[in-house]
Computed example of a mutant assay.
Amino acid sequence: MEEYPISFPMEKARTIFRCSVITYLRNYHRFAITAATFVGIPFTFAILITQAILPISDLLPIVYNRLRTLFFAAGFPPTSEFFFDLSLKLSQTITSLVLLLPFTFSFHLLAKTYVVRSFRNKNGSYMSTFISLFFTQIWNSFLVLSANSLSFFLVSFTFSCMEGFGFKSPNVIIFVSASGGVLYSILLAHAYIISNLALVCSGIEGSVGGGYIAILRACVLIRGRTATALALALPISMAMTAIEALFHYRVMRAYRNSNNITVIMAVEGILIAYLYSTIFVLDTVVNCLFYRSCKGLNLAKIDGLENCSGDDSAEEDMKNLI
C-alpha cells in the first residue's frame, strides 16, 4: 500500500473523510433512515424553504436598511460595491437565522444528538445529551455573533484610520474592502468549524463538556489541525450549496412558473430534502471522527458501530493518524 506523510493536512482530511463515508454506509439503517428521515428532514425542509422565501420576506428589507445605516455611521464608503454586497449577505444571514431559530434548537439538535450518541463508548441518556448540545448551541450562537462583530470592528477601525490619515484613493478602498472580505470569510470559517466540533465534544463527553467548556475544548483540540478541519468542511459546504441550488432550480422555479404545487414537484422536493439531510448527517459523522482523531483514539474501532474496520487500507490509514 502506498504510504503518505501524515503531516500533510489534505491527506489527513482524505483519510478521515474516507472512513466517515465507510462508517456512514455500513450504518445506513441507523444514520440515513432514522436520523435523516425522521429527524433531519423537517430541519432540512425549513432551510430550503427559508432560502426560497427569503427574497420576499418582510423582515429582510428591515434588517438590510438597519445594516446599511450602521455601516454608514461606522464610516464605510457609501459607494463601495463590496459593502453593498456585504450588507445584503449579512441581512440574508441574519433573517435566515431568525426564521430557522425554532428548528435549529429542536430538529437540528435532535438529529445531532442521535448521531453523536452513536460514537459514545458509554451511552448516557438521550435527554442529557440533548441538553448538553442545547446549551452548547446557545454559546455557539454567541461565538458566530462575536466573529461577525470582530470582523466588523476591524474593518471599521481600518477605514477610520484611513480617513484620519487622508487615504481616500479608490484603489486603496478596493484593496481594504477585498482584505476585509477575506478576513470576514476566515473568521466565519473558523467559527463554523469550532462550533461543529464543540457540539461533538459536548455530546461525546457529556454534561461535563457542555456549554462554553465545549467551545474551549474545541479550540484546544483544533490547534495545529485547522487546515485539516477546513479541508473536511469545504466539500460538505459545497455539497449543501449545490443541493440548495438544485432545490431552487427544480422546485421553486417550477412553482413560480406554474404558481401551483404538483405531485412531481412535491416528490422532487422530498427527495432533495432527503439528500440534504443525508449530507447533514454525514457532516456530523465526519466531525465525530475528526474529534476522535484529535483525541488520538482509534477510528477503526468504535463500540456499537460498523465502521472501517475490516477495510485493510482504510484501517491502516486511520491508525496512522493516531
Rank of each mutant, 00 (worst) to 15 (best):
I215T: 02
P55G: 01
L305T: 00
F107A: 09
Y212N: 12
I62A: 08
N121G: 15
L188Q: 09
E306F: 13
R217I: 09
V176W: 07
S258T: 10
M162Y: 01
D58M: 11
L88H: 15
T37K: 11
S57C: 04
F83D: 00
K122M: 08
L133K: 09
Y192L: 11
P77R: 09
R30G: 06
C308T: 00
F76G: 03
F142N: 05
T34D: 14
E11R: 12
Y114P: 02
S160M: 11
Y4H: 12
L100F: 01
I16P: 01
A73Y: 04
S309A: 09
I6Q: 11
A32V: 04
L271F: 08
L321K: 02
T95E: 03
F45R: 03
N65K: 13
L150T: 08
E205T: 04
V286S: 06
Y24Q: 00
Y192M: 09
M252H: 10
I53W: 08
R253H: 13
N65V: 15
N148T: 08
M127Y: 13
L154N: 06
G166A: 04
A231E: 00
E306K: 13
S118H: 15
S207Q: 11
G181Q: 05
L289T: 00
F142A: 03
I62F: 09
I22F: 08
R292I: 04
P55A: 00
G40Y: 02
I193E: 05
S149K: 10
T241D: 14
F159C: 05
L282A: 05
A229I: 05
F71G: 02
